[in-house]
Every structure is written in structure tokens, then in C-alpha cells.
């Protein structure tokens, strides 16, 4: 597993009710969310700073070809 600091922008036109779900859905595209918070709002765009984790993958070569193995 590795941790990554990322920042993403979310459209604030989502209703306040849907905003946290929209943020988490966007972060899920980058990894497993661990910690996030809105850092700034500019117009209709919300800037989110977050930490996500991803699993480490290694490529191994076998007689039948390469395969990805999750560590």
C-alpha cells in the first residue's frame, strides 16, 4: 500500500446534500480515500485536498506470460 496526497476539483453545482458524496466518488477514482477536506472554493468549483491509498502491484513474468500480482 502507498499513500498519495492529491487535490481535485468538484463542481459545486451539486446540492450541499450531495457534495460529500460527490467528493468521495471523485476521490475513489484515484484510490481509497483516507482523509479529505475542502481547502478552497472558487466560483462553482470546490478544491479538495485529500490523501488516498493505493495497493502496490508488481508485474511478474511466468512461462505463460506476465501477470499482475497485488502485494
Amino acid at each position: 500500500m502507498t499513500t498519495h496526497f492529491i487535490d481535485v476539483e468538484i463542481d459545486l453545482s451539486e446540492s450541499p446534500i450531495a457534495l460529500p458524496q460527490a467528493i468521495e466518488a471523485e476521490l475513489q477514482k484515484r484510490g481509497e480515500p483516507l482523509r479529505w477536506a475542502v481547502a478552497d472554493v472558487e466560483g462553482d468549483r470546490v478544491q479538495v485536498e485529500a490523501i488516498v491509498t493505493t495497493k502496490i502491484t508488481t508485474e511478474t513474468t511466468t512461462e505463460t506470460g506476465s501477470e499482475l500480482v497485488e502485494a
Binding site: T3, F5, A37, D40, E49, I51, T53, A71
Partner: peptide, 20 residues
């Protein structure tokens, strides 16, 4: 240890699997 662009503190560990 690091600082985010917002000025908030952030950081991490290089061996999270060892912790887990």
C-alpha cells in the same frame, strides 16, 4: 512531514503495510 498548498499540515509513512 509535508505542508499542503492550503498551508495545512500533512504527512505520511512509507511503510503503511508494516503498521497494518
Amino acid at each position: 512531514l509535508k505542508l499542503a498548498p492550503s498551508g495545512a499540515s500533512w504527512g505520511t509513512i512509507t511503510q503503511p503495510d508494516s503498521l497494518l
